[in-house]
Amino acid sequence: MRVIMLQSWQDFLDHTGRLEGWAFRGQRSASWPLLSSLSRRLLAYCPDQRLWPLREARAMRVFRRKAHVHLDHPQALDDALRCLAMMQHHGAATRLLDFTKSPFVAAFFAMESATDDAAVYALDTTTLWSARPAFAPELTREVIDPRQPGHFERHFLDNREPLVWFGEPSEMDRRLVAQSGLFVVPGRLEAPLDELLRQYSDQGPSLLIQLVLPHGLRARAMRELYRMNITHATLLPDLDGLAHSMNQELEIVWERLIEEYLAEPPHRT
């Protein structure tokens, strides 16, 4: 994986401007590995990796058995990728890694709550689209597509094949649409994404770039993103997103308001 230490917000604009057609993921710590929420949870609490397929399958089965009471169209649960997307949307740990087609959306999620150097990862999806894993060239993107019936269970759930697939569910929810989102689906839960990409012939090292955003850039980045209307309120278009966006509003106070407040602060009793 190539690592680029950025020096300014303009650096970020320049580098991402050259990555046409790539996908992006923001993480608030540059030191975190590219692991899914399910990977992190299983590594922390369920160390016996032999049982991971059993645990993941059970979580999906329980969710499907109970979620239908909350859904107008429960048939969506029959599609493995849509089911996982729904689980992830509502807080369940899944093997899905959230990516976006927008580097600015990724920068927002990287920087919004960062307390140290953050990172935006750029994935060359244009090359990965036709790349094949060296260990099994017959496993093309179409062959392992988890949107097709039985493919998720066959190629991902057993946690044996170091595969990578990316794409969108057959139907997207409002958050995915608002975020220009897509998912990366890893075939091995214990391996970070950069390690899995090494299986894709000699393209592996160049398929992924880590753009490190120093913490000192956060204030400028968040202000620029606010001007682009990239906030929790727009990326999570519901009441939860609006409420989360108030944290950003605490930081965005215009100079005129500050001057007026300091000139004549409110009376306190």
Rank of each mutant, 00 (worst) to 15 (best):
Q49F: 00
F104W: 15
M86Y: 07
L189A: 11
V164M: 12
R175M: 07
A93K: 00
R174I: 11
R65E: 14
A67H: 09
E56T: 01
P133V: 02
E161K: 14
A119L: 02
D72V: 04
R175D: 10
V69F: 00
H90N: 08
D98K: 07
W129V: 08
K66Y: 09
R95V: 10
M172W: 03
M111Q: 05
V185K: 01
R174P: 10
P162E: 00
A107K: 05
T127K: 11
Q179M: 08
M60S: 10
V164T: 07
R64Q: 15
M111N: 03
R188K: 14
A114E: 12
F99Q: 05
K101Q: 15
T94L: 04
F109W: 03
F183S: 07
D79E: 11
P146N: 04
A76K: 05
M86E: 09
R132W: 02
C46H: 13
F135D: 06
P47S: 12
M87R: 04
R61E: 15
Q179R: 01
R82Q: 15
L176V: 06
G150Y: 14
L54D: 13
H151W: 00
L189H: 04
S170R: 08
L189T: 03
F156W: 05
M60P: 05
A44M: 03
R188Y: 00
A44S: 11
A107R: 06
E161Q: 15
H151S: 12
